[in-house]
Design a protein around this nucleic acid. Structure first.
Lengths: 246, 246
DNA sequence: CGTTAGTCACGAACACTGTTCTACACTACG
DNA sequence: CGTAGTGTAGAACAGTGTTCGTGACTAACG
């Protein structure tokens, strides 16, 4: 009586990783969770995370929004699929205790670049719990590197957590800075920077002495040197003897 | 012809910090940006950031949504006002070169607690640029501490940036974990933790060996020890001789 | 005192969002 | 051929942020 005939999206999610034994090609181009994920990623890459609406995804698949809900539970579920896809693209190295810092930094950089390829998607990444298998895979890979390097398990786990959070927040920061500079097509990042310096130097000198004098240092940091600096900051403190403060 | 009689919200924003020489009490309870900010903060404190809608704010002020737009440009502007208010509550210590790590950690902890008092508001904090005066005040205060400690200006600026990003991301993480555990009123955080351990240990052993064996370490970290650990991680690498890698 | 000007408030509406209900087409099987 | 079952959509609902135009009310001016 209460049972709907259609398989619930949850069941489809569970069976998603099962081998597709019989696609059976019922429709000409059947809608699958993979196609939805792909279309969604294209939309984000083109128009940013704000452009990611169910209607846009449906339109790109030439259908209505309701059709998506047979394969995706939620928009939150779609978000999870997206960052899962991103994480699945990341290559995890074989742990080498001699080069563990380099390896961790490499994974973080890969994650950062994945985020930056899809502007604003880090908002979804920060609003998700880490139960997704693909995300856990990256977590496992970084854990393996740190454990192999002799880091205490708890320090390793907490460090990975901190790194994840920072990478997401950094990508978010870059994304909002870019979208705010987007309307001003004329101004490049360098132009925008001189604007920022001017604003800093026009601050009241009695309340903001340091920001005024160090305006250039505050706004400097071309490319991702800020990112590399912070990674070095965090990785520098981690040593095989670093035990958690308990 | 094109000029509307009403003062634009931008003008009101500009004159916001001017001394209120003549409140003139025109209405019985006039709507001001301050009252809007206050009402918005109460809503977030009670129902989380998702409950912060213009209609909810207007309803709490016993008016319609349109009335808010005479004092606030945008919802993004409201967000900026909110985190500005949060930052204005933070007490900045007089820089003491001998205790600079302690002082920085204290400011970060204050910021974290402010965020956590208003669940989910860190989403707004991460999506904003740092042009707000109240945010810059905190930035200036931390910069003063680090400069007084003899840290190179660029290292200081980048470190502050990284700390800000991490605090925001951490608060966000806590908020989403809480809201997901909210429907299960019965389960406390500890109960939720055992759930997480069980899920980790039920992972396939061939693909997630480390997560399985260190499940307890991964989920441990009562209270804010994770937060303190990361702060120590970042502050530990900063030394008066730490120059940026350039 | 009467009139005008200016400011603010607010109801109604618009375009948009995520989501659900229901009916519809189509395949596979008995 | 008929029936069950599955995937597909159209239409609609409850919300969201935001704007337009009208209305009321205070303040100043002749």
């Amino acid at each position: 009586m209460y049972g709907c005939a259609m398989a619930t999206p949850q069941q489809r999610r569970a069976a998603r990783h099962a081998p597709s034994d019989a696609p059976s090609a019922t429709r000409k181009v059947p809608i699958t969770a993979d196609r939805i994920t792909e279309a969604a990623l294209e939309i984000v890459a083109a128009g940013g995370y704000d452009a990611l609406t169910m209607r846009n995804v449906a339109a790109r698949l030439e259908t209505g929004p309701a059709s998506l809900y047979a394969h995706v539970v939620n928009k939150a579920d779609l978000d999870e699929l997206l960052i899962g896809r991103l994480c699945s693209q990341i290559e995890l190295p074989q742990p080498d205790p001699a080069r563990w810092r380099e390896q961790i930094a490499d994974v973080c950089t890969q994650l950062r670049d994945q985020y930056l390829s899809y502007p604003g998607i880090s908002r979804a990444a920060l609003a998700i719990d880490v139960t997704d298998l693909d995300v856990l895979r990256v977590n496992e890979g970084m854990l393996a590197i740190l454990i192999a390097a002799g880091i205490a398990p708890q320090s390793a786990a907490w460090s990975i957590d901190a790194l994840f959070l920072y990478v997401g927040a950094y990508a978010m920061d870059i994304a909002v800075a870019d979208t705010e500079a987007d309307p001003d097509k004329q101004r490049f990042t360098t132009e925008h920077r001189s604007d920022l310096i001017a604003r800093f130097e026009s601050l009241p000198a009695d309340r903001f002495p340091n920001i005024r004098t160090y305006a250039t240092e505050l706004t400097s940091g071309t490319a991702h040197s800020r990112f590399d600096f912070t990674l070095g900051l965090m990785l520098g403190s981690i040593t095989p003897s670093t035990r958690p403060p308990r």
